[in-house]
Design a protein around this nucleic acid. Sequence first.
RNA 1: CGGCGCGUAGCGCAGCCUGGUAGCGCACCUGGUUCGGGACCAGGGGGUCGGAGGUUCAAAUCCUCUCGCGCCGACCA
Length: 580
Amino acid sequence: MLWSRALIPTVKEAPADATSASHIFLTRAGYIRKVGAGMYDFLPLGVKVLKNVEAIVRREMNRAGALEVLMPQLLPGEYFKETGRWDLYGDVLFRLKDRKGGDFNLGPTHEEIITDIARREIRSYRDMPKNLYQIQTKFRDEPRPRGGLLRCREFSMKDAYSFDVDEESAKKSYEEMRVAYNKIFTQMGLNFRMVAADSGAIGGNTSAEFQVLVDSGEDAIVVCDTCDYAANVEVASAAAKPAKVSEAATTVRLADKQKVHTPGHGSIEDITKFLKVSAPEMLKSLVYVAGKDAVLVVVRGDHEVNEIRVARLLGVNEVFLASDAEVERATGAKVGFAGPVGFKGRVLVDRAASLVVNGATGANETDYHFTGVNFSRDYEGEVVDVRLAANGDLCPNCANAGKNGKLTLYKGIEAGHIFILGTKYSTAMSASFLDPAQEKKPIVMGCYGIGVSRLVATIVEQHHDAEGISWPWRIAPYHVEIVSIGKDAAVLEAATKLYADLQARGVEVLWDDRDERPGVKFKDADLIGIPLRVTVGGKGLAAGNVEVKPRTELDPKKAELVPVASAAQIIADRVHAALA
RNA sequence: CGGCGCGUAGCGCAGCCUGGUAGCGCACCUGGUUCGGGACCAGGGGGUCGGAGGUUCAAAUCCUCUCGCGCCGACCA
């Protein structure tokens, strides 16, 4: 492709609202343009990248034996009503009416529709296992789209669904997807972890997320520095053991409980400075509302409450941090002075917090704290695991085996998710089969998602520098970018020949043939991120050379000189080796 | 949904407080000089100031309503 004939609208300034690297560079480099909140145009380069991502996903799904289908995006409302998700999905579901007033929705995911296929077409145990997938546009009215392609209201997703005769067979299907997903993300050049994930309200099911490690990620995961353990902080908390505060703390004598005047020092940060204690010596006490009851949750000052686990322990769907007024009603003190000593009501104490010796905590009296507080002597409560895993915790997997692995906290972007659904949808929609004993049984399902358009952004998050994008070979819109310097006949002739010779060898080439100054072309080349740059200019040609430089090398002096005559073959060989 | 904030040229912004000719940089067009890491000079085109209503002799500016958008939080396969 000649740049002069392409549509690659690079810009110097990033959109003001962009905060993530992928949003900034994909926009600046002319891959995408915003149309509305969570809606984007894919310009020509963007489409090429998206198609490359799709191709990898499609190939590995096919290799894993999955069958591609295509379901509608516009769906009659009856399907979601059949499983109850018409109501459950709430405002996230895009709803619309047709001319006759009938209910329709845009597909946010396709369990209902695929289950409809299954109940019509799968009748015998002989018809399974089956795995059906599609790559298609999804619609979710997200409360807050953000990060460019990272969270959209309209996005491209690969969703696969497996159908098996029983749980054991379903696990095999799940396992095949796990293997396929590892191949897919590896080929995309991503640094990712498969992590144990919260299995949600449906107990006993298996679920794992594929988290790509980037600082701009929305999810928090912990990774062991010694073994291969990795988990979402929400599930890691129960098993992880906190690092010890200090040896002295465990052998020190119990101090007397004392009330201390702490005017206006409500927050953990304030109070640790004021009382000159460390955060791990604080008993952080938070009031939660579960239904009608106020519950006090106590964690160590350096820990965070795992709200999902609190809700699970209390047997409710969700809990909310109490409002200021509710806190005052429950504790008799202003926010910032709650504590377990003398609290009237249910108290959940995190295991790590219960071990704090001579701790400091709110006195349930405005402007007062207690110091020298010890569990059981000064307060009671149910000792449970209600904190999120934290940096430096001992690994629950290998610490016991004497390896002393420590957990490190990372931010992640959820790129994929695999899940054994069980019979939730097959039961709700009567998708059953006859087993060899002629018994009617519900199909056991699994579902497997990959955020395809999100991956485009995710890859940029991991493959960029200060100058722009640096695509992995298999994702890049072109393999080689030729930069011709000036308008000398010799330069044009050499570039024209190289361009043709590379194409003849199956290399995808972009030639920046614009009448621009060299600096502009180099800047744009770094911005759009083609893996290999070939500079054809008077200086090099005088010595019979072109200059070859990978995008990952920023120092132009380190470009490699390659003889013009053999350049096409050498470069083509290199490209094919990189793609092999 | 809660908190804060933003809508002025294709993009990034100033002007608003204190009402009185709508500006700057980039991009774009013309001419010239330049040409190996985002050139320079000269000239030029382009804006219902998000929308509606109100106050006023006069509104980008003040008031009311409304729509759109963003950041933080909550929520979320």
